[in-house]
């Protein structure tokens, strides 16, 4: 406990990732599901940065940069979808979207 190791960051990232996953699985609001996905991406980013520091290699940070770009694109498209779905169905509750029901 005297020094922070990479293991601590791994543990924190695992916890954040799992909570993001939990949010995706249990929440019904499409917007909050998007937020949970962002949380999961952040957990990943944190790990990238931690490993970059641990290994003394800048490549990890570059990848974080890319991840953020993709996340931004994803949020833009995802939110547009959410808006148009809301217009069609007057709801962003994903439980209202069960056309795949068997």
């Amino acid at each position: 406990m005297d020094e922070v190791t990479i293991g601590w960051y791994i543990a924190l990232a695992a916890i954040l990732f799992s909570m993001g996953a939990l949010g995706v699985l249990v929440r019904r609001n499409a917007l909050i599901i998007f937020m949970s996905i962002e949380l999961m991406l952040n957990a990943g980013n944190l790990l990238f940065v931690a490993f970059a520091r641990h290994l003394g290699d800048l490549d990890g940070q570059i990848w974080v940069f890319f991840t953020m770009t993709v996340a931004a694109a994803e949020v833009a498209v995802g939110l547009a979808l959410a808006v148009s779905i809301f217009r069609n169905r007057d709801s962003v509750n994903i439980d209202d979207m069960n056309m795949m029901k068997g």
Binding site: V24, L25, I94, D95, M100, K101, G102
Partner: peptide, 17 residues
Amino acid sequence: YKNFQSGYVRNYALGLF
């Protein structure tokens, strides 16, 4: 098995997860 095909995305996501 039909119950698994609920049509709810999060059910499928749970399966995936």
